[in-house]
Design a protein around this nucleic acid. Structure first.
Lengths: 176, 176
DNA sequence: CCGAGCATGTAAGGGGTTACATGATTGG
DNA sequence: CCAATCATGTAACCCCTTACATGCTCGG
């Protein structure tokens, strides 16, 4: 799975510009995949060269013009090929956890600061997902099947992280 | 955080060869960081060139010789500099979740197969961590502080994933 | 005798990030 | 007037993965 696959997936619902793709990536998906403009724009150019998408320039008033890309039949087929390819292993990379692992070499105060920071981030993310869940259930009840499920899983995983971190902080302060 | 930092961290306890570093990476750490030989060996060469580690060839009987690396003072300082640098954001990348997100374009059976497979993997990981936890608590009660905590968090996060996936599968089969 | 484990390394390529470059409009 | 939002793109670089190359020993 790479940016190609994800962009082709996003374009199934509607034609999008690079900037809009970045925004789509912001919320529900950003928990499982992320891409910067430095990836998105070159990828779009590559997809167009391969004939998977079509570019159309849209002139806008009071805003910069934008290039909106739509899926071709070849693009649709390419996305299906991705779906039929073997599922890749998840990868989780955590600087925070690596630091905890090497915690012996750090003073106790910094350690608890790291945990508190991580809790703050995790709780922030929790709020964000809740907001999205409300929005989605209000505006788009039609996608209350798989996408909602996806959001739920994201929410639960994050909630578990928050809980575990709170417990870790308790244990850490206990053995002070 | 990159392979440099992690390798310097691992060498704090004892001198290690590239092959042994790969083994150290196998279990507790592999949940939060991973590296292949193609990364480890060139990184070791680079660390040596920078004066952060020292190479010593160890001749072994009935086994290939190995290059064992030990930490220098400069290496120790470099690792401290890493610990004092800002904590990087976690990155989680999940092909499985992306596929769930685009689940509308896949048939129901394949979808549930994916979930079942993910559950299997998650439960396998759970067993593995349990084993390590037992081993560690038996052999090395001295590291029952931060490293144990790290293992616990890893275990809990994984357990939460398993639970959530089971629930997701239930929901999926319900709306069949 | 064959496969698994031990052991080290290289080369090519993939896939990404950050920073830079540019520029218009809108709201506070 | 300044910051934020909208909008696109490039160039340098980083970091890592896969595949290849090599070769020894031990157990079944």
């Amino acid at each position: 799975m790479n940016s190609q696959d994800v962009i082709l997936g996003l374009l199934h619902r509607q034609p999008l510009s690079g900037y809009e793709i970045k925004q789509m990536l912001e919320m529900p998906l950003s928990f499982f995949f992320d891409a910067s403009f430095g990836t998105i724009y070159p990828t779009l150019a590559k997809l167009e060269a391969q004939g998977y998408i079509l570019k159309e320039s849209v002139i806008q008033e009071s805003r910069p013009n934008k290039n909106v890309y739509s899926l071709t039949e070849a693009g649709r087929a390419q996305f299906q090929a991705y779906l039929e390819s073997p599922v890749e292993k998840d990868s989780y990379r955590s600087d925070f956890m690596v630091r905890m692992f090497f915690g012996e070499h750090m003073d106790h105060d910094t350690l608890t600061d790291w945990v508190r920071d991580e809790i703050r981030k995790s709780e922030e993310a929790e709020k964000q997902i809740s907001l999205i869940k409300q929005k989605v259930s209000g505006i788009r009840p039609e996608l209350s099947t798989v996408k909602t499920l996806c959001l739920d899983i994201g929410f639960e995983l994050n909630a578990a992280k928050t809980r575990t971190l709170h417990e870790a902080l308790r244990k850490l302060t206990e053995l002070e």
